[in-house]
Amino acid sequence: MIRALYTAASGMSAQQANLDTVANNLANSATTGFRQRRLQFQDMIYQNLITPGSPQSQNTVSAGLQIGLGTRTAASEVIMTQGDFNQTSNPLDLAIQGAGFFQVQQPDGTIAYTRDGSFHQNNQGALMTANGDLLLPNVTIPSNATAVTISQYGVVSGTIPGQTNAAQLGTMQLATFVNPGGLSSIGSNLFQPTQSSGNAITDLPGGTSGMGTLQQGYLENSNVDVVGEFVQMILAQRAYESNSKVVHVADDMYSQINGMIR
Protein backbone atom coordinates (compact mmCIF):
# COMPACT_ATOMS: atom_id res chain seq x y z
CA MET A 1 0.00 0.00 0.00
CA ILE A 2 2.87 2.37 0.77
CA ARG A 3 4.20 1.76 -2.75
CA ALA A 4 0.76 2.52 -4.20
CA LEU A 5 0.66 5.81 -2.31
CA TYR A 6 3.93 7.04 -3.80
CA THR A 7 3.07 5.71 -7.27
CA ALA A 8 -0.29 7.51 -7.27
CA ALA A 9 1.38 10.65 -5.92
CA SER A 10 3.78 10.63 -8.90
CA GLY A 11 0.77 10.47 -11.22
CA MET A 12 -0.87 13.41 -9.45
CA SER A 13 2.34 15.45 -9.69
CA ALA A 14 2.67 14.65 -13.39
CA GLN A 15 -0.92 15.66 -14.13
CA GLN A 16 -0.43 18.89 -12.19
CA ALA A 17 2.46 19.74 -14.52
CA ASN A 18 0.26 18.72 -17.46
CA LEU A 19 -2.47 21.10 -16.30
CA ASP A 20 0.10 23.88 -15.83
CA THR A 21 1.17 23.40 -19.47
CA VAL A 22 -2.44 23.47 -20.69
CA ALA A 23 -3.08 26.62 -18.67
CA ASN A 24 -0.06 28.35 -20.23
CA ASN A 25 -1.20 27.36 -23.71
CA LEU A 26 -4.71 28.71 -23.13
CA ALA A 27 -3.36 31.90 -21.54
CA ASN A 28 -1.37 32.53 -24.73
CA SER A 29 -4.06 31.55 -27.22
CA ALA A 30 -4.17 35.19 -28.40
CA THR A 31 -0.40 35.85 -28.22
CA THR A 32 1.07 36.72 -31.62
CA GLY A 33 3.39 34.00 -32.94
CA PHE A 34 3.06 31.86 -29.80
CA ARG A 35 4.01 28.17 -30.08
CA GLN A 36 2.07 25.77 -27.91
CA ARG A 37 3.81 23.16 -25.76
CA ARG A 38 2.94 19.52 -25.17
CA LEU A 39 4.10 17.65 -22.10
CA GLN A 40 5.58 14.18 -22.50
CA PHE A 41 5.68 11.51 -19.79
CA GLN A 42 7.83 8.48 -19.01
CA ASP A 43 7.24 5.54 -16.72
CA MET A 44 9.65 5.31 -13.80
CA ILE A 45 11.93 2.47 -12.69
CA TYR A 46 10.37 -0.96 -12.12
CA GLN A 47 10.79 -3.21 -9.12
CA ASN A 48 11.74 -6.68 -10.36
CA LEU A 49 10.22 -9.27 -8.05
CA ILE A 50 10.92 -11.92 -10.67
CA THR A 51 13.17 -10.91 -13.56
CA PRO A 52 11.79 -11.87 -17.00
CA GLY A 53 13.78 -14.77 -18.47
CA SER A 54 15.22 -15.89 -15.14
CA PRO A 55 15.13 -19.59 -14.15
CA GLN A 56 12.36 -20.49 -11.69
CA SER A 57 12.50 -24.14 -10.50
CA GLN A 58 12.91 -26.25 -13.65
CA ASN A 59 11.32 -23.69 -15.99
CA THR A 60 12.36 -20.33 -17.42
CA VAL A 61 9.98 -17.52 -16.55
CA SER A 62 8.92 -15.74 -19.73
CA ALA A 63 6.94 -12.82 -18.31
CA GLY A 64 8.47 -12.27 -14.90
CA LEU A 65 6.94 -10.10 -12.18
CA GLN A 66 7.58 -6.37 -12.33
CA ILE A 67 5.77 -3.60 -10.48
CA GLY A 68 5.99 -0.05 -11.79
CA LEU A 69 6.75 2.85 -9.49
CA GLY A 70 4.86 5.61 -11.26
CA THR A 71 5.42 8.26 -13.90
CA ARG A 72 7.36 11.46 -14.37
CA THR A 73 7.46 14.39 -16.79
CA ALA A 74 10.15 13.83 -19.40
CA ALA A 75 9.99 16.77 -21.81
CA SER A 76 8.01 19.84 -22.81
CA GLU A 77 7.88 19.77 -26.61
CA VAL A 78 7.34 22.95 -28.62
CA ILE A 79 4.82 22.43 -31.45
CA MET A 80 6.02 24.38 -34.49
CA THR A 81 2.95 24.20 -36.70
CA GLN A 82 1.97 27.35 -38.61
CA GLY A 83 -0.64 29.60 -37.00
CA ASP A 84 -3.43 31.34 -38.89
CA PHE A 85 -2.81 34.80 -40.35
CA ASN A 86 -4.62 37.90 -39.16
CA GLN A 87 -4.80 40.87 -41.54
CA THR A 88 -3.94 44.18 -39.83
CA SER A 89 -3.12 46.44 -42.84
CA ASN A 90 -0.27 47.89 -40.76
CA PRO A 91 2.76 48.16 -43.11
CA LEU A 92 5.17 47.23 -40.30
CA ASP A 93 3.29 44.04 -39.38
CA LEU A 94 4.87 40.95 -40.93
CA ALA A 95 3.96 37.27 -40.96
CA ILE A 96 6.27 34.47 -42.08
CA GLN A 97 4.78 31.97 -44.48
CA GLY A 98 7.19 29.15 -43.69
CA ALA A 99 9.58 27.91 -41.01
CA GLY A 100 11.75 31.00 -40.51
CA PHE A 101 12.25 33.26 -37.49
CA PHE A 102 12.99 36.97 -37.19
CA GLN A 103 16.32 37.81 -35.56
CA VAL A 104 16.41 40.47 -32.85
CA GLN A 105 19.18 41.85 -30.67
CA GLN A 106 18.50 41.95 -26.93
CA PRO A 107 19.85 44.69 -24.62
CA ASP A 108 22.75 42.46 -23.52
CA GLY A 109 23.82 42.00 -27.15
CA THR A 110 22.68 38.39 -27.54
CA ILE A 111 20.54 37.36 -30.49
CA ALA A 112 17.06 35.93 -29.96
CA TYR A 113 14.50 34.63 -32.43
CA THR A 114 10.79 35.27 -32.74
CA ARG A 115 7.75 34.62 -34.90
CA ASP A 116 6.13 37.84 -33.70
CA GLY A 117 6.34 40.27 -36.62
CA SER A 118 4.61 43.26 -35.01
CA PHE A 119 7.43 45.78 -35.48
CA HIS A 120 7.69 49.44 -34.54
CA GLN A 121 10.20 52.24 -35.12
CA ASN A 122 12.45 53.82 -32.53
CA ASN A 123 13.42 57.51 -32.51
CA GLN A 124 16.04 56.81 -35.19
CA GLY A 125 13.57 55.04 -37.49
CA ALA A 126 15.08 51.57 -36.89
CA LEU A 127 12.68 48.63 -36.73
CA MET A 128 12.32 47.01 -33.32
CA THR A 129 9.96 44.79 -31.30
CA ALA A 130 7.48 46.07 -28.74
CA ASN A 131 10.14 45.44 -26.06
CA GLY A 132 12.70 47.58 -27.88
CA ASP A 133 14.82 44.74 -29.32
CA LEU A 134 16.32 45.81 -32.65
CA LEU A 135 15.60 43.77 -35.77
CA LEU A 136 18.68 42.17 -37.34
CA PRO A 137 20.02 43.05 -39.86
CA ASN A 138 19.13 46.64 -38.96
CA VAL A 139 16.51 48.26 -41.17
CA THR A 140 16.04 52.02 -40.79
CA ILE A 141 13.12 53.83 -42.39
CA PRO A 142 13.59 57.62 -42.74
CA SER A 143 10.92 59.77 -41.11
CA ASN A 144 10.04 61.37 -44.46
CA ALA A 145 9.59 58.03 -46.26
CA THR A 146 6.09 57.24 -47.49
CA ALA A 147 4.42 54.23 -49.09
CA VAL A 148 6.72 51.80 -47.30
CA THR A 149 6.51 48.31 -48.76
CA ILE A 150 8.16 45.05 -47.70
CA SER A 151 8.24 42.43 -50.42
CA GLN A 152 7.81 38.72 -49.79
CA TYR A 153 11.57 38.42 -50.30
CA GLY A 154 12.38 40.90 -47.53
CA VAL A 155 13.22 43.97 -49.61
CA VAL A 156 12.13 47.16 -47.80
CA SER A 157 11.32 50.09 -50.09
CA GLY A 158 9.79 53.50 -49.67
CA THR A 159 9.18 56.76 -51.47
CA ILE A 160 11.53 59.59 -50.50
CA PRO A 161 10.53 63.21 -51.33
CA GLY A 162 12.47 64.49 -54.31
CA GLN A 163 13.07 61.02 -55.77
CA THR A 164 11.01 59.71 -58.63
CA ASN A 165 11.60 56.03 -57.98
CA ALA A 166 11.09 54.07 -54.80
CA ALA A 167 14.29 53.80 -52.75
CA GLN A 168 15.50 50.51 -51.27
CA LEU A 169 15.80 51.04 -47.52
CA GLY A 170 17.10 47.64 -46.45
CA THR A 171 16.81 43.88 -46.75
CA MET A 172 15.54 41.47 -44.11
CA GLN A 173 16.95 38.07 -43.21
CA LEU A 174 15.33 35.09 -41.55
CA ALA A 175 16.76 32.19 -39.57
CA THR A 176 15.90 28.51 -39.29
CA PHE A 177 17.15 25.61 -37.20
CA VAL A 178 17.71 21.94 -37.85
CA ASN A 179 15.49 21.15 -34.85
CA PRO A 180 13.31 24.18 -34.03
CA GLY A 181 11.47 22.10 -31.42
CA GLY A 182 14.67 22.21 -29.36
CA LEU A 183 14.59 26.01 -28.97
CA SER A 184 14.34 27.42 -25.46
CA SER A 185 11.49 29.86 -24.70
CA ILE A 186 12.68 32.88 -22.71
CA GLY A 187 9.45 34.90 -22.65
CA SER A 188 8.42 38.02 -24.57
CA ASN A 189 7.73 35.83 -27.66
CA LEU A 190 11.46 35.06 -27.89
CA PHE A 191 13.45 31.86 -28.34
CA GLN A 192 17.13 31.11 -27.84
CA PRO A 193 19.06 28.30 -29.53
CA THR A 194 20.25 25.29 -27.56
CA GLN A 195 22.50 22.36 -28.27
CA SER A 196 19.36 20.44 -29.20
CA SER A 197 18.16 23.01 -31.74
CA GLY A 198 21.55 23.56 -33.34
CA ASN A 199 22.93 26.88 -34.55
CA ALA A 200 20.87 29.31 -36.59
CA ILE A 201 20.94 29.08 -40.39
CA THR A 202 20.32 32.50 -41.94
CA ASP A 203 19.19 33.37 -45.45
CA LEU A 204 16.98 35.80 -47.36
CA PRO A 205 13.24 35.14 -47.38
CA GLY A 206 12.25 32.99 -50.33
CA GLY A 207 15.72 31.49 -50.62
CA THR A 208 16.67 27.85 -50.97
CA SER A 209 17.10 27.30 -47.21
CA GLY A 210 13.38 26.93 -46.52
CA MET A 211 12.98 30.20 -44.63
CA GLY A 212 9.63 30.98 -46.17
CA THR A 213 8.38 34.32 -47.42
CA LEU A 214 7.05 37.48 -45.76
CA GLN A 215 3.48 38.74 -45.84
CA GLN A 216 3.20 42.49 -45.20
CA GLY A 217 0.18 43.71 -43.27
CA TYR A 218 -0.42 40.38 -41.53
CA LEU A 219 0.40 38.85 -38.16
CA GLU A 220 0.57 35.17 -37.29
CA ASN A 221 -1.84 34.08 -34.60
CA SER A 222 -0.97 31.62 -31.85
CA ASN A 223 -1.06 28.00 -33.02
CA VAL A 224 -2.91 26.89 -29.86
CA ASP A 225 -5.95 24.71 -30.59
CA VAL A 226 -8.30 25.94 -27.86
CA VAL A 227 -10.76 23.04 -28.26
CA GLY A 228 -7.92 20.52 -28.14
CA GLU A 229 -6.51 22.17 -25.01
CA PHE A 230 -9.90 21.93 -23.29
CA VAL A 231 -9.96 18.21 -24.10
CA GLN A 232 -6.44 17.85 -22.64
CA MET A 233 -7.57 19.75 -19.55
CA ILE A 234 -10.46 17.32 -18.99
CA LEU A 235 -8.18 14.32 -19.50
CA ALA A 236 -5.65 15.75 -17.03
CA GLN A 237 -8.42 16.34 -14.50
CA ARG A 238 -9.76 12.80 -14.84
CA ALA A 239 -6.27 11.29 -14.54
CA TYR A 240 -5.61 13.40 -11.45
CA GLU A 241 -8.91 12.26 -9.88
CA SER A 242 -8.08 8.63 -10.65
CA ASN A 243 -4.70 8.87 -8.95
CA SER A 244 -6.29 10.68 -6.03
CA LYS A 245 -8.78 7.81 -5.71
CA VAL A 246 -5.87 5.33 -5.56
CA VAL A 247 -4.40 7.33 -2.66
CA HIS A 248 -7.70 7.10 -0.75
CA VAL A 249 -8.09 3.37 -1.43
CA ALA A 250 -4.50 2.59 -0.44
CA ASP A 251 -4.95 4.66 2.72
CA ASP A 252 -8.12 2.73 3.61
CA MET A 253 -6.35 -0.61 3.11
CA TYR A 254 -3.42 0.56 5.22
CA SER A 255 -5.85 1.64 7.97
CA GLN A 256 -7.49 -1.79 7.93
CA ILE A 257 -4.10 -3.49 8.32
CA ASN A 258 -3.27 -1.21 11.25
CA GLY A 259 -6.59 -2.14 12.82
CA MET A 260 -5.78 -5.85 12.52
CA ILE A 261 -2.39 -5.33 14.20
CA ARG A 262 -4.03 -3.65 17.15
Rank of each mutant, 00 (worst) to 15 (best):
N24L: 01
L190I: 08
M260W: 12
L169G: 04
I257H: 02
D20S: 09
D203I: 03
T81Y: 05
H248I: 07
P55N: 12
S196H: 12
I96P: 04
V249G: 08
L5E: 08
A130E: 13
V224E: 06
F191C: 03
G162V: 13
M253S: 06
Q124M: 12
S151I: 04
N258H: 07
L235A: 05
Q106N: 13
G259Q: 13
S184P: 01
Q256F: 00
R37A: 11
N179H: 11
L169W: 03
V22F: 03
Q195L: 09
S10W: 05
T194D: 10
N258T: 13
L69A: 15
E220H: 05
T149F: 01
T73E: 02
V104M: 06
E229V: 00
S197T: 02
M260G: 10
I261F: 06
M211F: 11
L26K: 00
V249C: 04
G206H: 09
L69R: 12
N138L: 14
A126E: 12
T149S: 11
F41W: 07
N24W: 04
S185L: 08
G212Q: 06
V226Q: 11
Q97W: 04
V155G: 02
F102T: 01
S54W: 00
T31D: 02
A130C: 01
L174V: 09
S157I: 03
F191D: 04
F177K: 00
N223A: 07
A63W: 01
G11M: 00
A30D: 14
L204Y: 15
I111P: 01
T194F: 06
T146K: 07
P161W: 11
V227D: 02
N165I: 11
D84V: 07
I45Q: 10
A27D: 10
Q66V: 10
S10Q: 03
T21W: 00
P193D: 10
N59E: 12
I141P: 09
S76T: 14
M12S: 11
F177A: 02
I257T: 13
